[in-house]
Design a binder for these strands. Structure first.
Lengths: 333, 333
DNA sequence: TTGTACGCGTTATCAA
DNA sequence: TTGATAACGCGTACAA
């Protein structure tokens, strides 16, 4: 059985028809004789005709592909989100091109350039930790190129966004720690420029306030992507702030913390409690125990993809920008 | 600044040249006047001309895209391998379309159909745990469609393959346990159909033999993808085999084991030792401790991509099939 | 040195 | 009901 790609022309030749007739027959056009349709359909099936998507793309100036830019795929939150994106996209006939920014603005720009040059129909993106603004994205989106943000989103109002309820999640986690009797809860989080950092800090603050604990700025540390930063932050906290719990707002930072705590402060961590904001599927196996705020990653990805595809496929330009907020839940270990 | 896609024709019109002249000028053809070249180059840069890859694909019947099929991206080994694949591919002007089989043969077939229909130039694949044969792949590869396997590879000789030295890795892990005084080492592994299962079992056996321990088949359990299978296997082992260590050959199974061991046998696991065959980057945080055999995932992905791209770009059909074997290392926790 | 014409596979328009 | 032709954007053989 040969698999050489069969074209309309091949079918036309074999059946003594014109390519246009074959094309119309396969698309079940009303103006084609039923017999012809049947004949064409049968033959096409027999030779396993599959339309060439490249030709279609060239014609329609659409690729039926969407791009996804995430910081890292080796992160459960993002890989779960990608699963949601893929399920939605594939079920609607789109395919997905995944790019990683590795938390670098430069890479993110490059990814965008790449995806645009490759003519994807739109992009889903969660901003890198070093992207302070979104000028590099505005440039494209102003020209009618669809972009939907998820998880790490910009302040800019003129975009569709899908996020978790970070404030509530952080509130609940912090409140949990407070109810366990913790009073000096250190908060270690991602760069301040990120929406998620701001919102989670807000939830943390609110919980403290609600429970009459004075917010102490020196318990809050923003950390970038050099592990040494986190190590140093922890050293400082332990040396001078006497924390009794940690609320750590990313996978990476949680691991950094455990690293240094286990190495240098093994005797101190027994009474400490740890809460993360991660989708780590193994957190319950950690010692000391790590509870976490879990985001509905799959659902977020799916919703984001849905919004993008709906937008791509709708004729009307809807200038109503949606912001979908999904709830988190606590996984206590 | 407008971003409307500029075509050769636009440039030609603006500069009062023909499209072919512009095309040649941009490709630095020797037959074009230097002045013209400069003029064209400048203008193209100014309007940010980017060739339309769709048009090129249609013309060349090549997409400069490769497909990757892996069981799950939410698995460090595969996400690291993908990083290697992407780095190699992007640096050579290819892009990467990632598909997940979710350990299902059906999905794997579908992925293949999809990638082929999308006209990727070739495919990198690590077989799903339920793929007993590769007929669905032979079908394509026999027709001059390039496929390179990595990690989970078929026996078939007529393919390029990149694998870890599973035998040596398993040998070293088992030997380590033996040297720690363990005598009844349970071996829990993936379905027998997978190359990795066979090779790791071989390493395990060899280590036992080398150290004068009789191989006991009842200590070996193959588990599929239903967690209950693993739970049951462990129950059986503990009930009737009295193991003093576990050598567990996948991320998923390691987690399954911990799940049940922590829940039901907390009092028994203190003296047990655990070794995995995983690229979990958090294994050192687990309690009980999990040491693991680590595969050079990034390198494997990169090598596999390199072989595929070299093949795609070489004129000659080289019928020499390579099998690259990379060494693992132990990460002791 | 530059331009014209064609073809990649498809569909839409117009003609028959 | 069917067929011929043009067009999408590009590169190239051939013509000028």
């Amino acid at each position: 059985m040969k698999l050489e790609t069969v074209t309309l022309k091949d079918i036309a030749k074999a059946l003594n028809l014109s390519t246009s007739t074959v094309s119309r027959a396969l698309r079940d056009s009303y103006e084609i004789n039923e017999n012809t349709k049947k004949k064409v359909a049968e033959y096409a099936k027999k030779v396993r005709y599959v339309p060439n998507p490249i030709a279609l793309s060239l014609k329609d100036n659409k690729t039926k592909a969407i791009g996804v830019i995430v910081p890292e795929i080796a992160n459960n939150f993002f890989s779960q989100a990608i699963n949601g994106i893929e399920d939605e996209a594939y079920s609607r006939g789109y395919h997905v091109v995944i790019c990683q920014s590795h938390e670098s603005l430069e890479r993110e720009k490059e990814n965008f350039r790449h995806l645009f040059a490759r003519k994807v129909d739109g992009v889903l993106i969660s901003l890198s930790g070093t992207s302070k603004d979104i000028n590099h994205i505005l440039e494209y989106s102003e020209n009618d190129f669809s972009v939907v943000f998820f998880d790490r989103v910009p302040e800019n109002e003129s975009f569709h966004k899908v996020v978790a309820n970070n404030v509530a999640g952080a509130f609940n986690a912090t409140e949990y720690l407070i109810k366990q009797g913790k009073k000096r809860i250190a908060h270690i989080t991602s760069p301040q420029s990120l929406s998620i950092s701001q919102e989670r800090l807000e939830g943390y603050r609110k919980a403290l306030e609600t429970h009459g604990i004075v917010f102490d700025e020196s318990l809050v540390k923003y950390c970038g992507f050099d592990p040494e930063e986190a190590f140093l932050a922890i050293d400082n906290l332990i040396d001078s702030q006497n924390p009794d719990a940690f609320f750590i707002c990313s996978d990476r930072l949680a691991l950094n913390c455990y690293e240094v705590l286990q190495k240098r402060y093994e005797n101190k961590i027994n009474d400490m409690m740890f809460f993360g904001f991660t989708n780590l599927n193994v957190s319950h196996l950690f010692r000391p125990q790590l509870s976490t705020v879990v985001q509905p990653a799959y659902e977020m990805g799916m919703q984001a993809a849905k919004i993008l595809l709906d937008k791509l496929e709708s004729k009307k330009k809807n200038q109503e920008y949606e912001k979908i907020v999904l709830e988190t839940y606590l996984k206590i270990s």
